[in-house]
Amino acid sequence: MTTMDTGERRRSSDVRPVITDLIDGATVLSIAEEAWIALVGEDEILVPIPGEPPVDIVSSWVDIVGPWTGSVVLTTGRGTAEELSRALLREAAPEVLEHEDVEDAFGEIANVVGGNVKAALPGPSGLSLPQVGNAPVVRNPVDVCRVDVVWRGEPVSISVQGALPPLPVPSPTRENEVPL
């Protein structure tokens, strides 16, 4: 098999896209709004303004692996995550929420938001199962699309963040130092 190594192919693979080239905050916000209306409730409004971040926070996220690789992360206060879980469970919500219920419900919101973000990105990509806990670190500050909203007076952030570190800046000395 002889495939010509055309300049076209090299150009397309020489560029690693960052998330802001692929999706904007308005799209992420509208995906989140739709998820909130369908899952949390019809009258549930997300106000796109930053709120005072709480001290005790929890994140839920899914990973996307493909032409763009990273995570879609929801972060909010622990109390707000519980309130969200109650809203999802509605009449099925138990009197005392177990940690498992919050993991399940808060994780499922990340799954729905993440699945729709994935569909808006170039594919093919894979999607992980949702995880709940401490969010993955931001590797490349340029590769982040973050939307801050307020739900029922409480701040929630939705961060679509890349997992790859920045590329090294080419230098004539051929030093191969890659930033951490």
Binding site: D63, I64, V65, T69, G70, S71, G126, L127, S128, L129, Q131, P136, V137, R139, A163, L164, P165
Partner: peptide, 11 residues
């Protein structure tokens, strides 16, 4: 199949 692991390895 190791989507979660890929992001964890990068992190």
């Amino acid at each position: 199949s190791e989507h979660t692991q890929i992001v964890r390895a990068l992190a």
